[in-house]
Amino acid sequence: MADQHRTTLRHPGAQAADDPDDLALGGPEPDSGALPVPAPDLRGFLPGIEPERRVTDWGRSERIEGLVDRTLIDFFYRLWFRCRVEGIEHVPADGGALLVANHSGALPPDAAMIAKAIKEEHPRPRPVNTTVEHFFKGYPGFSMLLPKIGAVPAHPANVHRLLYDERQLVLVFPEGRKGTEKLFKDRYRLRRFGRGGFVEAAMRAGVPIVPVAVVGAEEAQPVFAQVPLLQKLTGLLYFPITPTFPQLGPLGMLGYLPAKFVIRFLPAVRTDDYGAAHPRPWEDKALVQTVAHDIRATIQEELYDMLAARESVWLG
């Protein structure tokens, strides 16, 4: 299914005309952050899997991921947050797909819970690649641990390779740190969805976008205040005051309150059916912004629905 979507976008004829320019040495070079214009389909040349290895090319370690999953994440998923999962059938069983969710909590637990939900509830469990800020790649400790449990720096080229070439699931939080640093009083009010880069990424790869609404994460780790001075001293992204941090030291980052989690996967939005008028829809900024805005509105409305139906923060 997903394959057919791709072939409509990547028309072989259109490609051939583009290639020489894209690949010429003397040609105009895109900015470092920008993705190269569609290159020839090189998916057949991906490196093979070496069965002896227990680490992927992205640095994901089967051993460490398994260990964290069996202990910490399993505990939080089953006992602490008692996650309820709805609409898991909206996550495609194969091919690339971009999961887009709301973001909250100083050290956000939502990413791990969404990944765990797919692992536990989906008929064909698939690994989820969570995009994280480049900051974490440069911070000692995080830099070592995060890639091992499935986090990938949020570079457009990384997202494209995962979605298009490796046909995997990628989870993004378009709010980024604006979502996680917001205070408790602003809970469940979605921030701006970046610059729509996630829509562009999905369109380039021709994969569907699955919006995800998460309720509970805001109450699990409410942020009461931000301390800019301490942020500067520690070199962290931000320095929040939560019920347990910084009182309990770095481990206080894991001090979550036992709020009830509800994770709802919403129907997938196709990004490859804009017709002949849009052979390269990602170049149409207006379209990208519209789709980004629609997806944000979908998640926001869904959140309000879920909150209205919620009887208790702790029992759901």
């Binding site: 894209d22 070079e29 895109p30 470092s32 290159a39 992205w58 900051f135 790649k137 570079h155 080229a157």
Partner: peptide, 15 residues
């Protein structure tokens, strides 16, 4: 660098 892509393509430049 910190904000590198995981796999450099030939068309990319250093950030």
């Amino acid at each position: 660098e910190q904000d590198d892509p995981a796999f450099f393509l030939e068309t990319m430049r250093r950030p």
